[in-house]
Design a protein around this nucleic acid. Sequence first.
DNA 1: GTAGGGTTAG
Length: 670
Amino acid sequence: MILLTCWKMMRRLKIDTLTKFGTFEVSRRASEVATLGSHCFFSGSRPRNSFRDTSLLAENKKISHFIRIGQINEARAFFDNMGCRNTVSWNSMISGYVKRREMTKARKLFDEMPERDVVSWNLMISGYVSCGGNRFIEEGRCLFEMMPKRDCVSWNTMISGYAKNGMMDQALLLFDRMPHRNVVSWNAVVSGLLQNGDVMRAIEFFNRMPERDAASLSALVSGLIQNEELDGAARVLLEYKNKDGAKENLVHAYNTLIAGYGQKGLVDEARKLFDRIPFRNDERDKNNERFERNVVSWNTMIMCYVKAGDMVSAQELFEQMIERDTFSWNTMISGYVHVLDMEKASNLFSKMPNRDTLSWNLMVSGYSLTGNLELVSDFFEKMPEKSLVSWNSVIAGYEKYEDFNGAIELFLRMQSEGEKPDRHTLSSILSVSTGIMDLNLGMQIHQLVTKTVIPDTPINNALITMYSRCGAILEARTIFEELKLKKEVISWNAMIGGYASHGYASEALELFKLMRHFEVQPTYITFISVLHACAHAGLVEEGRRIFKSMQSEYGVEPTVEHFASLVDIVGRHGQLEEALDLIKSMPFEPDKAVWGALLGASRVHNNVEMARVAAEELMKLEPESSTPYVLLHNMYANMGCWDDAADIRGMMERNNIQKQTARSWIDSGY
DNA sequence: GTAGGGTTAG
């Protein structure tokens, strides 16, 4: 009975997998058992005791399981406690370290293991080459040369290692030298050539392949797309015939190309390809696979429409789908969120059968973008599971719509709930610090940035903006200098703007010169700051010259803000007529900043006629504002023109204008 | 337990 059970068990586990394990390594604990009755060794070719073997098989699987779910320490503890190990146990453990690129630990086990097979060597090589870089590739090559016996996998690992590190010559040398190539070797070379931009040779190798499989076509199509050869990819795909004439399931490759067209905005091309995929094909091919549209094809096509902003076609296709998955719903929602009309997004959201965190995040970020902060918080609180993106969306929304306290409160709450901020969170909070000009908060966030993320240019830009707006110009400049060649136009703008708004006009202009020296193309924001600096420093000629150069030298169209600055510059200098002419020559309607600049200048130069012109225009633009009335009234009063002053007062009363109480911003303190 | 390729959302 027992024998029968054993035999059945062995049948189920396939005897050959049991016998091919070879020699067992017996640890101290197990060897005690072994000397008593030997359960660990095979006698002849048939296992005498399959319980030990099956349990070893199960134990090895346990190691793999721990590794798969990312619990490497648990895997190691289990491995260390195993009574009996074979080469597979060691290899499994090594593969765990290799996957995590912990090559020192992997190497230690490899050096310690009592008996290595070809897989042990291959694992180590694969680990070294996937770490990348010359040193590791060399280490891999060294093992490759040392190993007693190589199989196809060893060669392929080394070839793809070279290919992925841009060392195509070395890869091809090995490919030429290898004794038996299989389809994987060919695929590795083809995709390697494509990754290194050698399209011609890739196609040549593809055509020379003695056999192909599904991966061959996928590699070629995706590689061609990466090399911007969309037409080539389409040709390959449409003309593709397998060597033995058998039909293959090409849907994957088709989907790849549809997505490629979508990336380039070629929606019509994508649609043509989508329409070529059979809708339903009942004749099964040799591989027992159907070539027909799958849910990914539909999703990808919908995605193309969404990216092109064509929600009508996206919706049409979505409605035709027989089987939708969460992805389909989320893509549609993201499309509606992207074009901001939220009602349709919300409709879909309420109808969808299974929502995941992304669905919720999409709604939250949609309401954040449209500034509906009430609904943001409503959705956020109802989320069954919050991800980092959820927190970031809400914080970004609060920041954008200037609910700075809300943003900070949420930032504190997220940390108390154990969610760690990333660079997105930190840049939002840096913008909050800038918004409320809280240098103290900004400095704390700076410390957090240093501790938790590797600062990239965007976050450094946010730091420069924060420090320069808060008046800590030196700190801003230090970060600006540390950026070295990674300075972007935003970095320059932030720094120039900081100087300009704190009265460091010459520094602002100096930096503007330097920016031109480095051939960084200024934007309209650069010119706003530079003109601002000229106005503060009374640099009339410089201001006029820079204003003219905007269009002629840099092709930047002046906006109403630039005109307002120039009006300010010439007006402050006392050239009020020129300022008025400038306003009249503007290609667009002057706004309150423009008239405000003229009014301010008129007041400084005590030109009451001009002040009256500007004030009347301001009264038309902002009928409820008391500022122009008050300014004009005070000017008349100062000159002793009491009748005129009384007139203004009368106008104020007739128009029901209240003098606004002075308000100041008070630090709410956190 | 090891080698090649692969489509979709924030």
